[in-house]
Simulated scan of single mutants.
Amino acid sequence: MRAILCAGALALAAPAQANEPAGAIVSIGGAVTEIVFALGAGDRLVARDTTSVYPEAALALPDVGYMRALSPEGVLSVGPDLILADQNAGPPETVEVLKDAEVAMVQIPDVFTGEGVQAKIRTIGAAIGVEDKAEALATDVAARLEAAQAQAEARAGGAKKRVLFVLSAAGGRIMASGSGTAAAAMIELAGAENAVTGFEGYKPLTDEAVISAAPDAILMMDRGGDHDSPVDQLVALPWIAATPAGQARAVVRMDGLYLLGFGPRIPEAVADLNAALYGG
Rank of each mutant, 00 (worst) to 15 (best):
E115F: 05
G125K: 06
V252I: 05
D140L: 12
I187D: 01
R2C: 08
E188S: 12
T197A: 14
A89W: 03
G30I: 03
L70W: 02
I124Q: 07
L189Q: 11
I211V: 15
R2H: 06
P238F: 01
G225S: 09
P72Q: 08
E93H: 13
G178Q: 07
A214W: 02
L164I: 05
A104I: 00
G74T: 06
A143G: 10
A148T: 06
V231D: 11
A31K: 15
R2K: 15
P238H: 05
V141F: 13
T206M: 04
L257M: 06
D140Y: 04
A269H: 02
V141K: 14
L277H: 11
E115Y: 04
E193S: 02
A183G: 10
Q17L: 14
T123Q: 12
L137P: 08
E20F: 01
V163R: 00
E93P: 00
E96L: 07
M254A: 13
P80I: 11
T197Q: 12
D100A: 15
A147T: 05
Y258T: 00
V53H: 09
A169V: 07
D228W: 08
A47D: 09
G256S: 02
P230Y: 04
E146N: 02
M67W: 02
L260T: 06
G40I: 01
R144N: 12
H227V: 15
V78R: 04
R48T: 14
G116S: 14
I211G: 06
Y258S: 04
L205Y: 06
S212L: 12
I4M: 14
D81P: 00
M186Y: 04
V163Q: 00
A22I: 00
M67I: 01
A85M: 14
P62C: 08
V235C: 10
G65V: 04
L273R: 03
D140G: 13
C6F: 09
R162S: 14
A152V: 02
K203R: 15
A104N: 15
R48P: 09
D207I: 00
S52N: 13
P204L: 06
P72L: 09
L45Y: 05
E153V: 02
F37C: 03
E268P: 06
T139A: 13
P55Y: 11
V235L: 04
A185P: 00
S168L: 12
G90S: 04
A9F: 14
I83Q: 11
V75D: 11
A236R: 11
G279A: 08
E73N: 11
A192S: 01
D49R: 12
L5H: 08
A143V: 03
V36E: 05
L234T: 04
I240C: 15
S77C: 08
P267W: 03
F37V: 09
P91H: 14
R144Y: 02
